[in-house]
Amino acid sequence: MIDENGQPFPSYAAFCNAKLLEDNPSLKPYLEEALRKAYLKGVELAVGETDLPKRTFPVECPYS
Rank of each mutant, 00 (worst) to 15 (best):
L35F: 06
F15E: 04
Y12H: 06
K54I: 09
A18I: 01
K19P: 05
P8K: 07
K41R: 13
F57Y: 15
L20V: 13
S11N: 00
A38T: 06
E49P: 05
L40Y: 01
L40E: 04
E32Y: 03
E49H: 05
K41S: 09
L21K: 11
A46F: 01
Y12C: 03
F15T: 07
P10V: 00
K19R: 10
K37Y: 03
N17F: 13
E60G: 13
Y30M: 13
A34P: 00
E44Y: 01
I2P: 09
Q7H: 03
L35K: 08
G42M: 03
N17L: 15
D3N: 06
A13Y: 01
L52C: 15
N17P: 09
P25T: 15
L40F: 00
A46E: 05
G42P: 07
E32I: 06
L40Q: 02
D51V: 14
Y30L: 13
R36Q: 06
C16W: 01
P29R: 09
L31R: 10
F15P: 00
P29N: 10
K19T: 11
N5C: 01
P25C: 12
K28H: 10
F57A: 04
E4D: 14
F15G: 03
L40C: 01
F9N: 12
E44I: 04
C16Q: 11
E22G: 13
